[in-house]
C-alpha cells in the first residue's frame, strides 16, 4: 500500500469516525450519563435527517436545515421525555420496551410524513467537490464533518466540565437525592439533558444525509447499534471516550473495507466484545 492510499484511508476513517461520534454524542448523555436505555435514539437521527433535508430542499439554506433538524430533535425529545421516559427512570426493562415502542411509532410516522421511499440528500454547493494534493484526493464534505465533530466535542466537554449546569448534571448523575436536597429541580435538569441529547442526535442525522447521499426511513435503526457500540467502547458517560471510540470504529471500518470487505460489518461488534472482555467498563470510563 502506498502512502497516498494510507493517508486517504486515514482521512476517510477519521471522517466516518467523527460522523459516528456525532451520532453517538447524544447517546453518551442519555445512555452514558443518565443510564436511560434509549432504543428510540435512532429516531432522532432519522427525524433530524429528514427535517434537515426537507428544509434544505425547500429553502436552499443548509444552515437552516441544520437548525431545523436540531429543533425537530429537541421538540421530539421534549415530548418523548415527558410522556414516556419520566415514568421509567431507573427501570431498564421498562425503558427498553417503551423506547422500542416509541421507535416503532416515530419510524412509521416518518413514512407517513415523508413517504417510504429513499430521499436524495445532496451536498450543499459550498462543501461540494474535493481538493487534490498530489495524488491524494480530499473530499470537502468529509473535512467539514471532521470539523463539526471537533466543535461538538469541544463544546460538550466545556459544557460538562467547566460550566455550572455541567456541574449540576454530573452531580445529579452520581447522587440524585443529594442534588435534589440542595434545592435543584433534578427532573428539569434531566429533561434538559435528554433534549440536548436528542438535539445532538438530530444534528448528527442532518449531517449524515449528504454524507451518504440518500436517506431512507430505516437509517435510524441501522445506525443506532453503531451509536450504542461507540458509547460502550468509549466508557459510559465519557464524551472524550466516545470521540476516541468513534474514531477507532471509523478507522477500523475504513481499513477493514480496504483489506477484507466481508468483515467490515463484523469489526465493530468484535471491537466492542474485545473491549468489554478486556476492560469491562469501557476504555475511558471516568464514572467509576
Amino acid at each position: 500500500m502506498s502512502w497516498d492510499q494510507l493517508i486517504s484511508l486515514i482521512i476517510n476513517g477519521l471522517a466516518t469516525g467523527m460522523l459516528i461520534f456525532l451520532l453517538a454524542a447524544g447517546l453518551t448523555l442519555i445512555f452514558g450519563l443518565m443510564d436511560v436505555l434509549n432504543f428510540a435514539h435512532g429516531a432522532f437521527f432519522a427525524w433530524g435527517a429528514y427535517t434537515g433535508a426537507w428544509i434544505y430542499a425547500g429553502t436552499g439554506s443548509f444552515i437552516g436545515g441544520i437548525l431545523g433538524g436540531i429543533l425537530a430533535g429537541i421538540i421530539i425529545g421534549f415530548i418523548m421525555e415527558k410522556l414516556t421516559i419520566q415514568p421509567v427512570y431507573g427501570n431498564p426493562v421498562s425503558q427498553i420496551l417503551i423506547t422500542m415502542g416509541v421507535m416503532l411509532v416515530l419510524s412509521e410516522l416518518i413514512k407517513v410524513f415523508f413517504g417510504p421511499n429513499p430521499v436524495a440528500t445532496p451536498v450543499p454547493a459550498l462543501l461540494d467537490g474535493s481538493w487534490a494534493i498530489g495524488n491524494i484526493i480530499i473530499i470537502k464534505y468529509r473535512v467539514f464533518i471532521i470539523l463539526m465533530g471537533l466543535v461538538t466535542l469541544t463544546g460538550l466537554s466545556l459544557l460538562l466540565n467547566k460550566s455550572k449546569i455541567g456541574l449540576i448534571i454530573r452531580a445529579g448523575v452520581s447522587n440524585k437525592e443529594m442534588v435534589q436536597a440542595l434545592g435543584i429541580n433534578i427532573k428539569q435538569v434531566f429533561a434538559m439533558v435528554f433534549m440536548l441529547g436528542a438535539g445532538l442526535a438530530a444534528f448528527g442525522g442532518v449531517l449524515l444525509g449528504p454524507y451518504s447521499g440518500t436517506i431512507q426511513p430505516g437509517i435510524g435503526f441501522e445506525n443506532q447499534l453503531l451509536a450504542f457500540i461507540v458509547v460502550v467502547i468509549g466508557g459510559l458517560g465519557s464524551i472524550g471516550g466516545s470521540a476516541m471510540a468513534g474514531i477507532l470504529v471509523g478507522l477500523a471500518g475504513s481499513f477493514m473495507a480496504f483489506y477484507f470487505p466481508e468483515g467490515a460489518l463484523a469489526v465493530n461488534v468484535l471491537l466492542m466484545a474485545l473491549v468489554l472482555l478486556l476492560k469491562p467498563k469501557g476504555l475511558f470510563n471516568f464514572r467509576g
Binding site: 421509567v88 415502542g101 416509541v102 421507535m103 416503532l104
Partner: peptide, 16 residues
C-alpha cells in the same frame, strides 16, 4: 397500512 404505529403504541401503553 401503518399498523406498526399501533403496535408501538401497544408497547408504550403496556409499560405505562
Amino acid at each position: 397500512e401503518r399498523w406498526m404505529i399501533l403496535f408501538g403504541l401497544v408497547y408504550i401503553l403496556i409499560v405505562l
